[in-house]
């Protein structure tokens, strides 16, 4: 199905929630409001025309100039082979973007819709500080549990030391003078 048709179905079903659609370009996507994102995700997965049964990736983006954090969900609908022995194929492909306020970044978790989202949401929380409400295990996944801050935010400040190990920000002051 073409991206235009997918976005049209989505807009007709959730007219108030879909704020922007971009059917052209290399990355066709729709921007949805975070409030009912979980319902939209269920619709995307369970609707027979769409059938997005696989979440490929969640990418977190820091739009510091707009004071926004964005979660980009890349969705994939698997097409079963029409005849025995034929190839599995991509039936539908679309991306969903969810913008949230940078200081109050709360997005409903879709880990119960697509299990892939479990670790990806933990990663987005760890590195960008997007809080996924309703996540079954909302811990950090990459950094240490006692890490301060979210490293991939563009205003992140490097730690000066970690558990007694000196760390640094700029050339010159990086290493202790032995």
């Amino acid at each position: 199905m073409a991206p235009e048709a997918i976005l049209k179905i989505l807009q007709e079903t959730f007219p108030d929630e879909v704020t922007e659609v971009m059917p052209e370009g290399v990355h066709p996507h729709a921007v949805v409001r975070p409030d009912r994102w979980h319902d939209i995700a269920l619709f995307l997965r369970d609707d027979e025309r769409l059938g997005f049964d696989w979440l490929r990736c969640i990418s977190g983006v820091d739009h510091i100039e707009d004071k926004l954090l964005t979660a980009v969900y890349d969705l994939h609908a698997t097409g079963k082979p029409d005849t025995p022995g034929a190839m599995w194929h991509v039936r539908n492909e679309i991306a969903i973007k969810v913008h949230v306020d940078r200081d109050n970044a709360h997005i409903p978790s879709v880990a119960d819709v697509w299990p892939t989202a479990d670790w990806h949401e933990r990663e987005a929380y760890d590195l960008l500080g997007i809080i996924f409400d309703g996540h079954p295990d909302p811990r950090r996944i990459l950094c240490c549990d006692d890490w301060v801050g979210h490293p991939l935010r563009k205003d992140y400040e490097f730690p000066l030391e970690y558990h007694g190990i000196p760390a640094v920000t700029e050339y010159g002051q990086t290493r202790p003078q032995h």
Binding site: L142, P151, I165, P166, E170, Y171, R175
Partner: peptide, 18 residues
Amino acid sequence: GGGPYFKHGYHVVKGVDL
């Protein structure tokens, strides 16, 4: 000494001799 992660590696120890 941290290598390619010397400047922007927020998680890298700048040399195991530390």
